[in-house]
Design a protein around this nucleic acid. Structure first.
Lengths: 336, 336
DNA sequence: CTGTTAGCGCGTTCAC
DNA sequence: GTGAACGCGCTAACAG
């Protein structure tokens, strides 16, 4: 591997000049610049990142810590972040905390060690609940999960509102006994639960809630138990995330129940299969790519302007009504 | 930030001793070790990775370059790699080459610059076709994509065999006009195409092939055109990947055609939705997690033993027969 | 078993 | 506009 010394020798200049040319600094004559560039080319020189980082104390690297990489939502977010980083010639370290606070801590520690320029994080509930921005030596942008207590740059869906609208849609369609399966271990799940409660309260209905771990398998098992034991069945079940929704559909399949006739269905995240199933499934679609893009934009802005005012971007979910949320029977005739 | 000097001073020992303790090297007395650890704790010392890497010329970092992060197949692979890396306290840099040779080159260059210990790569066809292992200063394990010409550690599905079995299943079920939609820009797609051709040849049938870019959108558009123009329609369409399969299903939906009655369907990758659709879809399931795990195992073995013999792990796909591949009508009565 | 010391390769003063 | 020299923080070789 050629070093900066070799380039300097080859070009007949000093290492300082080479460094200046490579950094694009002014104060280098055009002929010198040209000769340096030629030598860099000729020798196939590449700066040693370890040395550069040690010396400059910068890394041009971002961290992205998602809570579940299997979740298509986070895949889209990751993709957006990755795209933007590539465009800005930044490196990204993608880590999967797997909803595990310990793994999350490990990775945040790793980000410190790596001396990253900033981190995009979808925090576990535990971390969010006593979140201290000053705890980290790098700027952090929260994505997907945040609450109004926390003073931090963030990009989130308006979960409360989206869930409220989804639940109201169900109420308006004649559903009365509305069950809610949600991931209680994340702020997002809780907020969506709150939106659900709020809509029910407005309609004078009582909640039927089931908190669970936000994985397909957990949801499937919980839903199977629920569907086998709960009598009478509710009119409809709402899932607070795409993963839970998938588990629900599988449980329905397991138990032989048909939606929307035996029980209706709705949820979050417009995954590819939600519109392909027959009947297709009513969901709140999230602007996932946009969320990832906004997150990295916030982060880059914060890195450029550390003292900038805290910004929270709240995006609106889109209610996509499909067949799965139709009521078994027409609304009470009193309403007609 | 505390430095190693500070720890040494605090513990009343030399920096060398601190370094030895931290590296877990032998030749340190227990009392010294204890005092060093106490000081590390007291000062919250964390070694500077840039300095350590500059000095040691090692990074404890692996690269993972996948060709499409939106593909659930690569998500599972990534997850497996990530799990194993976490268990081994290794860092992973996950990059998405997006089927773009230029991006792929950029990331491989980046891996060089980062001085990673090794890379797991699902190469574009262009790169695979003139693959030179010696071109890289780090060991590389190929995943998902490889061919017998290439002398490299690799973990792949037995694509030829899997595709052959899938196609034979269709032939056995009475299908005669079998179309194949495949991603021609990857070795995997080509091998699956070859398996298809081989099965057709064995049955004396002629191919109806459609090469395309392996994305949902491309497949959807290509399939829509095909379904609208091609007359008579084939008996069945096979998709060489889960993404293409999804595009096919969407196109079927777009054109109002029903499977398996109007046209049957089969494909690769047992994505969650393939068994949820009605009718459910016949697929070859890949052992995705296992592939990721094997890949990193190969890589770690190669790093430990650079001169070890080249190993190629070829896994078998599992044919999962569902309703989508049923023939419109019973096989010709001559066969009965 | 422990300490001293010489770089790893680069960026950045500070002279010239 | 250019070059010499120092040091970022650490590991490893060597001396004791």
């Amino acid at each position: 591997m050629a070093r900066i010394q070799d380039v300097a020798k080859h070009a007949g200049v000093s290492v300082a000049s080479v460094s200046r040319v490579l950094a694009g600094l002014p104060g280098v004559s055009e002929p010198t610049r040209a000769r340096v560039m030629a030598s860099v080319e000729a020798l196939g020189y590449r700066p040693d990142l370890a040395a550069r980082r040690l010396r400059s104390r910068r890394t041009d690297t971002l961290g992205l810590i998602v809570s579940d990489i299997r979740n298509p939502f986070f895949m889209e977010v990751s993709r957006a972040v990755e795209d933007m980083a590539y465009a800005n010639r930044l490196r990204v370290m993608l880590c999967n905390a797997d909803e595990d606070p310990e793994k999350e801590s490990f990775y945040l520690q790793m980000m410190r060690d790596e001396n990253v320029a900033g981190v995009i994080l979808s925090p576990t509930l535990a971390r969010l609940n006593n979140y201290r921005p000053t705890e980290y030596p790098f700027p952090v942008v929260l994505v997907d999960r945040c609450n109004s207590m926390v003073e931090a740059d963030a990009v989130v869906l308006d979960n409360m509102d989206a869930s409220l609208r989804l639940t109201r849609h169900l109420v308006d369609n004649g559903h009365r006994k509305i069950a809610f399966f949600y991931g209680a271990s994340s702020a997002t799940g809780q907020q969506r639960y709150d939106g659900y409660l709020s809509a029910l309260a407005g309609a004078g209905l009582s909640p039927i809630a089931q908190a669970l771990k936000p994985t397909v398998e957990e949801a499937r098992i919980a839903a199977r138990n629920f569907l086998e034991r709960q009598r009478p069945l509710p009119d409809v079940i709402v899932a607070s995330s795409g993963l839970i929704l998938l588990g629900l559909v599988e449980a329905l399949r397991d138990t032989g129940l048909k939606y929307p006739d035996d029980i209706a269905l709705a949820g979050f995240d417009d995954m590819p299969w939600t519109r392909l199933l027959t009947p297709a499934i009513t969901v709140i679609a999230q602007p996932t790519y946009e969320m990832g893009r906004s997150a990295i934009e916030l982060l880059l802005a914060r890195i450029a302007q550390p003292e900038q005012v805290v910004r929270r971007i709240m995006l609106r979910g889109e209610l996509i009504v499909r067949e799965s949320s139709q009521a078994r029977r027409a609304p009470p005739s009193a309403q007609q």
